[in-house]
């Protein structure tokens, strides 16, 4: 009997069999001798699954280290099946992963895990952010002191602020080394990520400066931001501003008073 039914494999059937755990191999694919062979189709399934989870492993190395390879891969496989990339630009893939981690029941016991992932996502996106010169302290010092309060600072394209009720910056730093040392002082942290030259840097801001930084990143003028921060003890306007500017947090200073004067 030589009558053979030729089955056409649509792209949608092929695609549907790639990610689900128990998907069957589509009809219409075979070896050249006409034998169906699931081990061969599994090469595609494995390439896709491993390729996508590996992208998450590269973006979230500390998150991986905190939970171990097996746990991370199982968690990543679920994310990948739920939210495969929607663009061929893989360097942006996985930015929703921290939110997924936060709501992933098996990870519920590790309260800080999602925030560590948020910090890693901030580092990854800062790495690829647009090139722009950082605002220098000299440029700020050229502004007449009586106008400084009206100045708004433009966040540098690579600058990120990550705030957490957990010591995420310390956890991140301790897990970036070969030997992990325990975190002794458990407290909330606000971490500033910047890219002053080509490499990304991060630092934990002093607790009294966190609100000031957040206000400036929300486009608050220097005056009101400093007044709010001063209500906390220990805040020093000059020290806080110098720390942020010299880390490369901003790319421009906009003197709104001057602008208004010019427009008048």
């Amino acid at each position: 009997m030589s009558r053979v039914r030729i089955c056409r494999v649509g792209e949608s059937q092929f695609a549907a069999a790639l990610l689900p755990r128990e998907a069957a191999m589509p009809e219409g694919l075979s070896t050249r001798s006409g034998r169906r062979d699931a081990a061969r189709f599994a090469v595609y399934r494995n390439n896709v699954g491993v390729g996508l989870t590996r992208a998450l492993e590269r973006r979230y190395p500390v998150t991986l280290r905190l939970v171990g390879e097996d746990f991370f891969r199982a968690m990543a496989r679920e994310y990948v099946a739920l939210a495969p990339p929607t663009s061929p630009v893989m360097l942006a893939y996985g930015s929703q992963f921290p939110e997924f981690v936060e709501n992933f029941p098996p990870a519920a016991g590790i309260a800080y895990l999602a925030d560590v992932a948020r910090l890693e996502d901030a580092m990854a996106s800062a790495f690829h952010a647009a090139d722009e010169a950082c605002l220098a302290m000299d440029a700020l010092m050229a502004i007449p002191p009586d106008q400084l309060g009206d100045v708004r600072l433009t966040a540098h394209p690579a600058a990120r602020l990550v705030s957490s009720p957990h010591p995420v910056g310390t956890i991140y730093a301790r897990h970036g080394q070969d030997a992990v040392s325990p975190v002794t002082h458990w407290c909330a942290e606000t971490v500033l990520v910047t890219r002053p030259h080509i490499r990304c840097e991060m630092q934990v801001l002093p607790v009294e400066e966190a609100g000031f930084a957040a206000a400036l990143f929300s486009d608050e003028a220097l005056g009101p931001a400093a007044e709010q921060a001063a209500s906390r003890g220990g805040f020093d306007f000059g020290r806080a501003l110098l720390r942020l500017v010299s880390a490369g947090a901003f790319s421009a200073a906009v003197n709104s008073a001057e602008k208004e004067a010019r427009h008048a």
Binding site: E11, S12, V48, P88
Partner: peptide, 9 residues
């Protein structure tokens, strides 16, 4: 790419 999903392979 199939519809909106990119399979990275």
């Amino acid at each position: 790419t199939h519809e909106s999903a990119f399979f990275n392979d």
